[in-house]
Amino acid sequence: MSGSTSFWPKQIIPPTPENYKELAKDGAERLAAVSLAQIPAIPAGAIIHDNGCGHGSATAVIVESAAPEVAATYRITGTDISGGAVEIYRSKAEALGWPAEGLVMDSDSLSFPDETFTHSIANAVLFIGPRNNGVDAVKEMYRTLKPGGTLIVNCFAYVAVLDAIREASRATRTGGELPVWNSFEHWADPAFIASIVEAGGFEKGSISVQQREMFVNIGDFERHTELVWSMRGMPAGGWTQEDEDKWDEALAIVRREMQKTKGFMTLEDGTTIIRNVVNVATATK
């Protein structure tokens, strides 16, 4: 969870890695799938960098999207600044038979030689982790791509829960203090991520940005909104007694506002679909 606090509302769901994963559902995999759909199928013999690999969402999609005999010829390296994430990545690679290794590495300072990879993907990375809006990370991706190599990066242009937690914050907090997790505005314009890729070294004419919808099944809606407010609702100054006192009111607002969003749908099995919008930038070195 972003920010820090000495007070925790009694209703809060603890910000553990397991609970963050429950919040995300398969969103990272769906984001990777939408992004990889914007390039031609990855050919046999590809040497692939999964940059900011996390638990391996992009690697999973890459491997599962190819015929087994093609996927077996890939050489995939997943890197992440989090040692814990890399340990999970390695465990999954071994258990699932991925042709992959995991290394702890900062995306802004890769230790690979120049011109190592045929493909480099940063899935849900540029807008949350690297410095300088991801320009330094893209420079490293450019450096380590072979001539003719393919870059894939992405960002969210619209997130269904964002306006809902803003509205709950305004309505339930004295002064209307907004949550720490509050803005994707400058990433919403496709031209912005294109400018990051260009600043990273890619020729403007080689860059393409596609805006695509992404639908995620978030499971039980009430449980999901509890996770959303617990993990995304904390204000910059930390949780307060007022947040505890108005917890149920805030949740009711989050639920009401999310139900208004385009694409919101409750299925026959009781689970819920929400819609996000992503910008996918691809480029050739």
Rank of each mutant, 00 (worst) to 15 (best):
I76W: 05
Q241T: 14
S57N: 11
E64H: 15
S195R: 10
H224P: 00
K21D: 14
S57F: 09
V125E: 10
R255S: 01
T79W: 01
E185C: 10
I273L: 14
W239P: 00
T172M: 06
F117G: 08
R256N: 11
A37W: 08
L103V: 12
G83V: 15
V161H: 05
L162S: 05
I39C: 07
L267P: 00
S183K: 10
V216H: 03
I128G: 14
M214P: 01
F184K: 13
E242I: 05
G78A: 02
P43W: 01
A32T: 03
N279C: 08
L126M: 02
D106F: 10
P190R: 08
P9M: 01
F221T: 00
S183Y: 07
G200P: 08
I193S: 07
F221H: 06
V86D: 03
E249G: 09
F156N: 05
P40C: 06
S107N: 12
I13L: 08
T282S: 06
S82T: 15
L96R: 15
A283G: 09
S111F: 08
A67Q: 14
T5R: 11
Q259M: 15
A124K: 06
M234P: 00
A72K: 10
W239K: 03
G78K: 02
T174F: 06
Y142Q: 12
E167G: 03
R255P: 00
S109L: 12
A71C: 12
P14T: 13
V216D: 02
I12E: 01
K285N: 11
A252N: 04
F192V: 02
L126G: 03
D136K: 09
P40W: 04
M258K: 00
T59S: 08
I207F: 07
S107L: 07
K21I: 09
V86N: 06
M141H: 03
N123W: 02
S208Y: 00
Q241A: 05
A283S: 10
S208H: 11
V209D: 08
Q241W: 09
G56P: 00
Y74S: 02
V216C: 03
A199S: 15
I42M: 11
V216G: 01
H119P: 06
T16R: 12
F112N: 02
F192T: 02
D269L: 09
V159C: 10
M234I: 14
I12H: 03
K10P: 01
R131N: 08
G27V: 01
E198Y: 06
T77A: 10
E101S: 14
Q241L: 05
M231H: 12
P179I: 05
M214N: 07
M1C: 10
